[in-house]
Amino acid sequence: MTEDNRTLRYPHPAITPGEFEEFVAGELLGAAGSEVDDLVVTVHEKIVGADGAYDIDATVRYRFAGMAFLVVVEAKLHRNPIKRELVQVLHQKIHSVGAHKGVMVATSPYQSGAVEFAAAHGIALVTVTESRFVFATRDTTTARPTFVAHYSGGAGSRGLVLSADDDDHAACVATFLLGQPA
């Protein structure tokens, strides 16, 4: 069964785009607070970049090892698969505003071109289905029940399945979504 077939089995969430953005910011990204210093997650922060101003769905600012980091996040409440072009737009925003990492969280699967582009540029892709998170890049293939990251594949990679109840939940978010060094 392909990634697209697995995620399409689950119904589309009955929430508004604003509620989805709040969920991504508070529930998903806020989990890393115990792993990093001074974590601040903001919904709809306006950031001026090299080529203009952007309204970012969510930003994550934190400190680790005395350094300040910025992660930009796009939340997509879509029914159709996410195309490469949307990931390319996120990549442009990352470079324009000088962010350290980009994350796209969607309610639909990603087309193969989107996954390939994200993997080539270090952008984390997450699919949310029925309280499940499927990480689609960075050695990623499957999902978990309430919050599971499943990473496998690629030379030298390791498999990982993590539930929200696990002690490593916050560390997983910090490492794989925020890009914190392990």
Score class of each variant (00 low, 15 high):
Asp57Met: 09
Asp57Glu: 12
Ala58Tyr: 08
Ala58Cys: 15
Thr59Gly: 11
Thr59His: 05
Val60Cys: 14
Val60Ser: 07
Val60Tyr: 01
Tyr62Cys: 10
Arg63Cys: 11
Arg63Thr: 14
Arg63Asp: 13
Arg63Gly: 14
Phe64Pro: 07
Phe64Met: 03
Gly66Gln: 10
Gly66Met: 11
Gly66Ile: 12
Ala68Phe: 00
Ala68Lys: 10
Ala68Val: 11
Ala68Ile: 01
Leu70Glu: 02
Leu70Asp: 08
Val71Gln: 06
Val71Tyr: 03
Val72Cys: 08
Val72Phe: 02
Val72Glu: 07
Val73Lys: 03
Glu74Cys: 03
Ala75Val: 09
Ala75Ile: 06
Lys76Asn: 05
Lys76Met: 09
Lys76Phe: 04
Leu77Val: 04
Leu77Gln: 05
His78Tyr: 15
Arg79Trp: 11
Arg79Gly: 14
Arg79Lys: 15
Asn80Val: 07
Asn80Gln: 11
Pro81Lys: 11
Pro81Asp: 12
Pro81Asn: 06
Ile82Met: 10
Ile82Ala: 10
Lys83Ile: 06
Arg84Leu: 09
Arg84Tyr: 01
Arg84Pro: 01
Glu85Met: 04
Glu85Trp: 00
Leu86Trp: 09
Gln88Val: 15
Val89Trp: 01
Val89Lys: 12
Val89Ser: 12
Leu90Thr: 08
Leu90Ala: 06
Leu90Pro: 12
His91Asp: 14
His91Ile: 04
His91Trp: 10
Gln92Thr: 14
Ile94Gln: 04
Ile94Trp: 04
Ile94Asp: 02
His95Gln: 14
His95Arg: 13
Ser96Leu: 09
Ser96Gln: 12
Ser96Asp: 15
Ser96Trp: 04
Val97Ala: 04
Val97Ser: 02
Val97Met: 06
Val97Phe: 00
Val97Asn: 04
Gly98Met: 09
Gly98Ser: 10
Ala99Lys: 07
Ala99Thr: 05
Ala99Met: 08
Ala99Asp: 07
His100Asp: 15
Lys101Val: 02
Lys101Pro: 01
Gly102Lys: 02
Gly102Tyr: 05
Gly102Pro: 09
Gly102Arg: 00
Met104Cys: 11
Met104Gly: 02
Met104Ser: 10
Val105Gln: 06
Val105Tyr: 09
Ala106Gln: 03
Ala106Lys: 02
Thr107Tyr: 08
Ser108Pro: 05
Ser108Arg: 01
Ser108Met: 02
Pro109Glu: 07
Tyr110Trp: 07
Tyr110Arg: 01
Tyr110Glu: 06
Tyr110Asn: 01
Gln111Tyr: 03
Ser112Val: 05
Ser112Thr: 08
Ser112His: 03
Ser112Trp: 01
Ser112Glu: 09
Gly113His: 05
Gly113Lys: 07
Ala114Gln: 05
Ala114Leu: 07
Val115Gly: 00
Val115Glu: 05
Val115His: 00
Val115Phe: 00
Glu116Thr: 13
Glu116Ala: 15
Phe117Ser: 06
Phe117Arg: 05
Phe117Cys: 03
Ala118Arg: 03
Ala118Gln: 03
Ala118Lys: 03
Ala119Leu: 02
Ala119Arg: 13
Ala119Tyr: 00
Ala120Gly: 11
Ala120Cys: 01
